[in-house]
Simulated scan of single mutants.
Amino acid sequence: MQKICVIGGSRYFGRLLVKRLQAAGHQVTVINRGSTRPPAGVEHLVVDRNDEAALVAALGTRTFDAVVDQVCYTPVQAATAARAFRGRTRRYVMTSTIEVYDPATAALTAVPTATPVPEETVDPSTWPVSTDLPWHDEAYLEAHYAEGKRQAEAVLTRAAGFEFASVRSAHVLGGGAREFTGRLAHYVERIARGEEVTVHAEALPTVFIHYEELADLLLWAATAADFTGPINACSDGLLDVRDLSAVVAARTGRQPVYRTVARGETASPFSFCRHYAMSNARAKRLGFSFSRTTDWLPGAVAEALTASAVRTA
């Protein structure tokens, strides 16, 4: 049994992670602001992780084998966590994102379109950090989501007092109504109603991961693995927007209606005009086995169809 702290953990794959940690026999503590209670038997610390003094007070004398941070979005939050958990945990795992590789958000080394992007494309040990930017402004944070994650990784990579690993998640799908982003529902509902799906003229592929697989990977990263640095978390197989729509079409019985967007016009989610589909080779070398996206995606579409029918009934 290990003592694991989860910051966030109130919804989607974070909540599932908490349940899986508990089922594996670990002693789990969840930290959030109290809007959602964790499952019975899980210790709950109600505190705003942005309030360093309150966080330190809530932690008291607790120590952990690992911390899994689900809701770290800025270098300021990362710095607060680094100070609060220094000497309290052996290992710190942060949930990051595929968006750190988006070439539209930073000057990155170009990776050939046919080549999945490796972790070293964004090296947190050398990435510049600016904590004096307006990270507390919600509009600024939303517009600089990818950079916030890059800088948060950088701060925690350089922190002393614990091992640090970041899990850069692909686009997460599955779970029907639990999939709170609504991106898969966008396709299910539009294709089922015969409405147009907007796409780029040459839409490039991306990568996905099922929410249960991501929860399993985070559990492994926190309790069984000993790697440090970033790993990419994505199921095997690249899909573009038309591949995704074809799976939805097979379930709905309706053919997609596409409209190509003009330059500068926003397309449907998962239609990309730039390449940043990740490679999962490092995670495989470290011992994690991934599913294939095409194996679980039809089931995820079926769940989204059911959830959509419930919403519109």
Rank of each mutant, 00 (worst) to 15 (best):
P256D: 03
T312P: 00
P118W: 06
T89E: 12
Q22C: 10
S245Y: 04
V30P: 08
P230C: 14
V6L: 12
V261I: 05
T89I: 05
Q27W: 03
T115F: 06
Q77E: 15
A262E: 13
C5I: 11
V6E: 05
E163P: 05
A53K: 15
A281S: 11
A53Q: 15
T266M: 07
V155R: 05
F270M: 10
E212N: 05
T80F: 09
S235A: 13
S308N: 05
R86Y: 06
S279L: 10
F288P: 11
H275A: 12
A203W: 05
D236K: 13
Q77H: 14
G175F: 04
W135T: 14
A23N: 12
R183T: 02
V47G: 14
V129Y: 00
R285T: 12
S279V: 06
A309P: 05
A110C: 06
G8A: 14
T61H: 15
V257G: 02
R168W: 11
R263F: 12
N232M: 10
G287A: 12
E212Q: 14
F270E: 01
L184H: 02
G237W: 07
S279K: 00
A53L: 13
S271T: 09
E179P: 02
Y73L: 15
V46H: 12
A300Y: 14
A40K: 06
I209C: 04
F180A: 06
S169C: 04
M1F: 07
A106K: 08
L173K: 01
E213R: 03
R168A: 11
T105V: 03
A160V: 07
H171P: 01
E303S: 02
E138K: 15
G161I: 06
E163K: 11
D132M: 09
P298C: 07
K3E: 12
F290T: 05
